Computed example of a mutant assay.
Amino acid sequence: MVPGFVQLGLIALLFQLTIIGGFYGYLRYRHPVADSSTRRRVMKVLAGGACLLAIGQAAALGALGSLMVTPLLSFEQALFIQDAGLFLTLVGYIVVFAGFVLHSRASVS
């Protein structure tokens, strides 16, 4: 059984990924990129960033959620994993932002 805040956090994570995908779909529809290699690179950067932020948030939620179910980790270890997950999430958001910047620069030229 997973604690409620972990379930709510995973729903929020899915909502964030849906927003990122929807925004990219809108940009792709309104401002298409003619070059297929640039389009592929933008897609890889966005997908990589989305994977990083999903893994980071899931790790951060799971570390503290595991303390409530079965304490496999000590409190200090769980906090370290949570901090590492939040850092990975931050890196993921930066990569997603970089993907949107790549798309906007490619669609202008």
Rank of each mutant, 00 (worst) to 15 (best):
M43Y: 12
Y24N: 12
V95A: 05
R41D: 14
S37P: 03
L13S: 07
M1K: 03
I94H: 02
L14V: 11
I94F: 09
L53Y: 02
I20S: 05
G99F: 06
V91S: 02
S104G: 04
I55M: 03
I94T: 10
T38Y: 08
D83N: 13
F80L: 15
V6M: 03
G25K: 02
C51Y: 04
A84C: 12
A78V: 08
V95D: 03
Q82D: 13
S109H: 11
R40M: 10
I20D: 10
L73P: 07
T89P: 02
I20L: 12
D83K: 12
A54T: 14
R30V: 04
Q57E: 07
R40W: 12
V95H: 01
F100L: 07
V69N: 05
H31V: 02
F87N: 12
Q7M: 09
L79A: 07
G22A: 09
Q16K: 09
L61M: 06
S37F: 07
F100Q: 06
F97Q: 01
A12M: 04
A12I: 01
Y26N: 10
V33H: 08
F5G: 10
D35H: 08
Y26C: 09
G4Q: 14
G21M: 08
R105C: 05
I11H: 15
Q16W: 09
L61T: 02
M43A: 15
G92N: 03
V2F: 01
A106T: 04
R40A: 14
G62D: 00
P71V: 10
R39L: 13
S107Y: 04
V45E: 07
A12R: 06
I81D: 03
L64C: 02
D83Q: 13
G99C: 07
V96S: 08
Y24H: 15
M68N: 12
Q7R: 14
M68T: 15
I20V: 15
H103S: 04
G21A: 13
F100V: 07
L67T: 11
V2H: 04
I55R: 00
M68R: 14
I19H: 11
H31W: 09
V2A: 05
D35S: 13
L64E: 14
L88H: 06
L46H: 03
E76C: 00
G48M: 05
A59T: 06
V33D: 05
A47V: 11
R105S: 07
G85K: 03
A58H: 00
S66D: 12
E76N: 08
P3G: 05
L17K: 06
Q7N: 11
Q7T: 12
R28S: 14
F97L: 11
L53F: 11
G85R: 00
L102V: 00
I81L: 13
D35R: 13
T89G: 13
A106F: 06
Y93P: 06
L79V: 04
G56A: 00
I20E: 09
A98V: 09
G21R: 12
M1P: 01
G62W: 01
L46V: 10
Y24D: 14
